[in-house]
Nucleic acid binder design. Structure first.
Length: 588
RNA sequence: GGGGGUGUGGCGAAGCUGGUUAUCGCGCCGGCCUGUCAAGCCGGAGACCGCGGGUUCAAGUCCCGUCACUCCCGCCA
């Protein structure tokens, strides 16, 4: 290899290098043999350089060139010269390298798919041959972006006085929330480690340990079904800070996001981010991770319901539910089929149906309009609807009505092309409820984790009115994705006890599961809080992708399999024996 | 756990209400070609249409089942 080691990479040479003798290493991207003259596009991570073998080249070089096939890994020794026909589409388009020697470093079998941006091989195949997929410039660009983002994170947080500290990935299972991945212990038969769903407890203990400002690019594991924006293992920019309030965390996180976008994409984010209360996010956008790149807010139709005689709406209101309306500008021409498609979107989220009416120049028509004809003026004025608009309604429990109509809003927004894909619409969602009512078990559950601080003004009424308690908790959202979640933590053992008892968690149980954290809190814990932006989702959004698999080098597919290494796989029998494990037959 | 979509040479697709020899592009093999850059031109090989069953004179096409992938609901503190 030594003698063929590159002296330049494939994105580097310009007219300034004219006349130089260079050695290039790379892969055969394209091969254009014109009989007399032969072109080879040589590719590496940095770009493409055109190699030329002229008719008057030595016969050995001509033979070597003729033997080349797609994705052979080669070395070329040649002379940089000006192109007769420059190609303005590539950075090296003004030069080419006239080959004096070509050496095949390794051969490549017939490809399962072309290494090409235009290749649209199915994702499963791309994942099986990920090493080929990664050679494409789009994957290279995304991996580079991810690297740049990670680097910018470290750069910024280091400048803000954060220490990067590693926490263990073999920890005690604390079976709250998601399912844990379990690692059986060989030394201690019957006992298991768990892979962390997040470094949550450890980073809080780091605060007790006086670390003050911590971060970690942390791999997290959750044994739940995957999605386009969810993987079994994923990466968080995990942060925790001592002696801070919510606004301090917002300021640091906003600064970090601004730094990331400026450094990697030269985009100036406008700070501070919008803040929306959880209740308002649902009420106005039908989601706790609202897509804010277009308006079209949900509205309350309840004031117009009484006296209309439409029983469905009246009954929902009587039982404490809500009737939400969505005015879709200029879509009175929607066909029944189009409305049915929207109804399907609403039903997916639990709505029983999607009511509608159209605004025409003579009033309101179709759907449920006959019940409200007398209030036409009142309704159109109240909702801001004009001739040519379509009005859609969902009546249900407040939350269901909001989320179902929110799904319709999102579908309509996408269908109508209302979303400017070049924008990044950030916001903080604040004032989440601390508890949520568990209908099945007739008890209060923690809405987040149990170490989330209630907001101070609710401390006195936490037991008497738990449903109204707001948490000192926040999500950062962008373009309809939850990008980060965090909170101010409970550091007062008395408050912690009250929360445990609210959610029906005994002291014994708490001690058994989180004893080490509770013990730590006996020794002068500082007030603290933190946040954990998801690195995969952040890079996905920045790259304009809609699956985090596109920004993870070796992702699992949606059924948790890695098609390349074929994990998960059975272990050797002696491995099970070492662990004292026996695999039971699958239950029907 | 539930719902939708997809499955046709190595890859991506077409194939309508069932009807000869399953079509196209890319790739592959052979040949031609002095300036291309998704090079071009000529020729060729390669598919039991995911799998199993059924209906029919006849199934890629219709029915039932099943598997794989994918999107979504549930789930994801």
């Amino acid at each position: 290899m030594e003698q063929y080691r590159r002296t330049a990479h494939c994105g580097q040479l310009t007219l300034a290098d004219e006349g130089k003798t260079v050695t290039l290493n790379g892969w055969v991207h394209r091969n254009r043999d014109h009989g007399g003259v032969h072109f080879v596009d040589l590719r590496d991570r940095y770009g493409l350089t055109q190699i030329v073998v002229d008719e008057d080249a030595a016969s050995k070089v001509r033979e070597q060139a003729a033997a080349l096939k797609f994705e052979y890994c080669i070395a070329v020794v040649g002379t940089v010269r000006r192109r007769l026909n420059p190609n303005p589409n590539i950075p090296t388009g003004e030069i080419e390298v006239s080959a004096g020697e070509i050496h095949i470093l390794s051969r490549c079998e017939v490809l399962p798919f072309m290494v090409d941006e235009k290749s649209d091989a199915k994702e499963d195949l791309r994942l099986k041959y990920r090493y080929l997929d990664l050679r494409s410039s789009s994957m290279q660009r995304k991996l580079k972006l991810r690297h740049d983002v990670t680097f910018a994170v470290r750069e910024f947080l280091n400048g803000e006085g954060f220490m990067e500290i590693e926490t263990p990935t073999l920890i005690k299972s604390t079976p709250e929330g998601a399912r844990d991945f379990i690692v059986p212990s060989r030394i201690h038969h019957g006992k298991v480690y768990a892979l962390p769903q997040s470094p949550q407890l450890f980073k809080q203990i780091l605060m007790v340990g006086g670390c003050d400002r911590y971060f970690q690019i942390a791999r997290c594991y959750r044994d739940e079904d995957a999605r386009g924006d969810r993987q079994l293992e994923f990466t968080q920019i995990d942060m925790e800070m001592s002696f801070v309030s919510r606004d301090d965390i917002f300021a640091v996180t906003e600064g970090m996001m601004a730094h990331i976008f400026k450094k990697t994409m030269n985009i100036d984010l406008s700070l501070p981010f919008l803040r929306i209360a959880y209740h308002d996010a649902l009420n106005r956008f039908g989601s706790d991770k609202p897509e804010l790149r277009f308006d079209m807010e949900l509205q309350d139709f309840a004031p117009f319901v009484p006296g209309g005689g439409f029983k469905v709406f009246e009954q929902v209101l009587e039982s404490g539910g809500a009737v939400k309306a969505l005015v879709v500008k200029g879509c009175a021409g929607y066909s029944r089929k189009q409305i049915t498609d929207l109804e399907d979107a609403a039903k997916t989220y639990g709505a029983k149906g999607l009511a509608w009416m159209k605004v025409t120049d003579t009033g309101i028509e179709g759907g449920i309009s006959k019940f409200f004809a007398e209030k036409t003026g009142e309704i159109t004025a109240g909702l801001g609807a004009d001739t040519g608009d379509l009005i859609l309604f969902v009546a249900d429990k407040w939350q269901t009505a909001c989320t179902a109509l929110g799904a319709v809003r999102l579908k309509v927004g996408r269908d109508l092309g209302l979303i400017d894909s070049s924008r990044f619409a950030f916001a903080w969602i604040v004032d989440f409820p601390l508890f949520e009512w568990n209908e099945d078990e007739q008890k209060w559950d923690p809405a987040h984790h149990m170490f989330t601080m209630p907001q101070a003004q609710y401390l006195d009424t936490m037991e008497s009115n738990p449903g109204d308690v707001r948490a000192d908790m926040y999500d950062m959202v962008c373009n309809g994705y939850e990008l980060a979640s965090g909170s101010i933590r409970v550091h007062d053992p008395e408050i912690q006890k009250r929360i445990f008892s609210m959610v029906g968690f005994s002291q014994e149980e708490a001690q058994k599961r989180f004893g080490f954290l509770l013990d730590a809190f006996k020794y002068g814990p500082p007030p603290h809080g933190g946040i954990a932006p998801g690195l995969d989702r952040l890079v996905m959004i920045m790259a304009g992708e809609n699956s985090i698999r596109e920004v993870i080098a070796f992702p699992k597919n949606t059924v948790g399999i890695s098609p390349m290494d074929e994990s998960p796989a059975e272990a050797e029998p002696e491995q099970y024996r070492d662990l004292g494990l026996q695999v039971l037959p699958e239950e029907e």
